[in-house]
Amino acid sequence: MQQKLRIAIQKSGRLYEESVKLLKDCGVDVKNGINKLKTEAENFPLEIYFLRDDDIPQYVEDAVADIGIVGENVVYEKNKKVQIVEELGFGKCRLSVAVGRKEEYSGIAYLQGKRIATTYPVLVKKFLDEKGVQAEIHEISGSVEIAPGIGLADAIVDLVSSGSTLFMNGLKEVEPVLKSQAVLIRNEQLDAGKLKILDRLLFRIRAVKKAKNNKYVLLNAPNDKLQDIIALLPGMKSPTVLPLAEEGWSSVHSVLSENQFWDIIEQLKEAGAQGILVIPIEKMII
């Protein structure tokens, strides 16, 4: 019987859709029926478990699952014996301190002696200890943002993405505690066979990630400006240059990272490039 790697992902919540999409982008055929807690990929040696995100680090530590996709905040809060093997680039958020909008927050000393409501007591205690602040931590399981309004706490520490939930509850973000994103974790005792399957999966994940962070660029360049334009295009090794039917012109093909994209496109226009075409990349293997 072929050995399979067991992966745990959120059964619902903010990471579920992106986790399933990542696996599908990696060519893994994932089928999840309604209320189904386990499925198998037909075209890759992978079993998928759909679990509560808070439970995933424990399942991976106990080797019920071999690997899992979960937020960094959960990994550090649960503090289980698991290894982070890859940052996945989605589910980005931050764990932050928030106080009432009308409060005058003067710095971390504001929290001295205050009552703080949170779902992340381990991370909050570690943060306060590092800052030398003594405060009363109230652990609550949900709707943390309403705690100041009902008199349960003076401040909260909760996950923030856009900040709209804080705003609607009369709060403002004042102090970051932790930046978080989805990560791939693994059991520390995987055997050689499962490590080999994990390497295959990581190869695919990294190809998908690299494609998302880069764009394929085609442009037309006058030959007398060709070297100036090529100098602006790092590419994977060097740009591809092909002659056009019109004499004195060439077609230049290259790859640009998302971070450099707009600055370099503007420079290319100034250098004389024309007909610039930008195409998303589905997979990128180097």
Rank of each mutant, 00 (worst) to 15 (best):
S143P: 05
L123K: 02
I9P: 02
V157E: 03
E247Q: 12
I279W: 00
E42T: 13
I265R: 01
P57N: 07
L123C: 00
E139S: 13
D199Q: 15
I229C: 05
E282A: 05
K126L: 02
F203E: 15
E40N: 14
D158G: 08
Q58H: 04
D62T: 05
G100S: 12
E247S: 15
I281R: 00
E18L: 05
I285M: 15
V70W: 07
Y76F: 12
P243V: 14
Y120T: 06
I140Y: 03
V255R: 00
R206L: 08
E18S: 09
L111S: 10
V255F: 07
I279F: 01
E40V: 09
D54K: 12
A117C: 10
G193M: 13
V99M: 06
L202G: 09
E42D: 13
F261K: 12
V28Y: 11
L15W: 06
G151E: 09
Y76I: 05
L184M: 11
L88I: 01
G170S: 06
D66A: 09
D66T: 06
G151K: 08
E61P: 03
I150E: 12
P280S: 07
L226S: 06
G275K: 15
G27W: 02
G163V: 10
I276G: 05
D55S: 15
K36V: 13
R200D: 15
I286N: 11
V28W: 05
I285E: 15
K78P: 01
A135S: 10
S250M: 11
A155G: 04
F50A: 11
P176M: 04
L178D: 04
E103F: 07
C26V: 05
E136P: 00
F127R: 04
Q134T: 10
I230F: 03
A147T: 04
G235T: 07
N32Q: 14
I69H: 03
L23Y: 09
I264R: 09
L195Y: 02
K31L: 08
A117S: 09
T119N: 07
Q2M: 14
